[in-house]
Design a protein around this nucleic acid. Sequence first.
DNA 1: AGGCAACCGGAATCCAAGATTCCACTTATC
DNA 2: GATAAGTGGAATCTTGGATTCCGGTTGCCT
Lengths: 192, 192
Amino acid sequence: MRADARRNLGKIVAAAAEVVAERGVNAPMEAIAKRAGVGVGTLYRRFPDRDALIAAVGDHYIHTMAQALDTASRTSADAWSAIWDFVSWAAAPGRAALSTALAVLPEEVIVERAEFARIRDEWVAQLAELVRRAQAEGSMRPDVGVDDLLHLLNVFTCHPDKLPAPVAADPGRYLRLMLDGMKASAATPAGA
Amino acid sequence: MRADARRNLGKIVAAAAEVVAERGVNAPMEAIAKRAGVGVGTLYRRFPDRDALIAAVGDHYIHTMAQALDTASRTSADAWSAIWDFVSWAAAPGRAALSTALAVLPEEVIVERAEFARIRDEWVAQLAELVRRAQAEGSMRPDVGVDDLLHLLNVFTCHPDKLPAPVAADPGRYLRLMLDGMKASAATPAGA
DNA sequence: AGGCAACCGGAATCCAAGATTCCACTTATC
DNA sequence: GATAAGTGGAATCTTGGATTCCGGTTGCCT
């Protein structure tokens, strides 16, 4: 592969990551191309189609994400604050969509990407474990689960263009509100 | 207007309300037509375009909504439970999208619909008042506002097709989680 | 019953937004 | 300098609706 080509490949994946993070998983190819300072044609010479490109972004990102979760769970005093820190990290500007899109959405795209699926599953399992611990510690209410966490992460980050502007601008704020609602002490007894 | 035509008009608005409630504000005309047991052409004979139809649904619904808020605030012991009841009502299956779409989204469609705008504004003001009271009572945290409430209502009900299935199936559950997070007692101090 | 304007259904048409393809033109590399 | 790898981006193809049109029906009045 020619040197300039390799360079472009890098710019493309990086640009795709950025654009996906801010415009959601359905960001148009052209937006990515423009961000990378490259023609659409160039994207297609390297990736057979849109899905392949997104998947590549995933491969590139899933590691970072797994690592962030790991860090959060290692540097936090308890499971609850690990979750809190991680969610804050995941919703930070500049990475929003990625974090979660990859964790919940693309079941079709994933087939045949054993490596990606493996890390993703490990990651989810680790988060689940944190939830379990937080509940055992009595800091998280027992009537919610990892799935809720993932769904919400998904809701607030996957389709920024469908969200009210203020929400899209700071999904973290709303996610933290959700987390506050997930604290054991916040639970409103059923039928209230 | 011929009798059968009037009958159809009714079926159309009712069908539109249902479909919008379950598929979001962007439900396709054809879906509405089918639900009403009528051809698309018929929709267009009565309404110049899509927006007009949606607006009609709004007129038909905003009253119900205003009334629900009124009831909630009159039958509840305190401002907080009024809010709680109203949100639960608004997110109930079968009315989801309507409730909120009309409260936040369509600023362009509303021009020239003085009556609709008036009721809508009154309605929002009333909800705002409840929020103020709840905060004064010390039951709702002071760092959130009506806007947050409206945005979230919006997020969880306007585009059901973009939400993870479990969330779309029961937006109320997640909204109540949010409300729990909005309780004064749930607030996590900034910088935690 | 007869006539006709008001109505209908829904296929045909129009559009917008993106994905994907293609190829004449550049540029690393040897 | 030759040439295969690489490039930009206009042209083309798809998709998902909105909107238009018109031959065929019906209510309703006399």
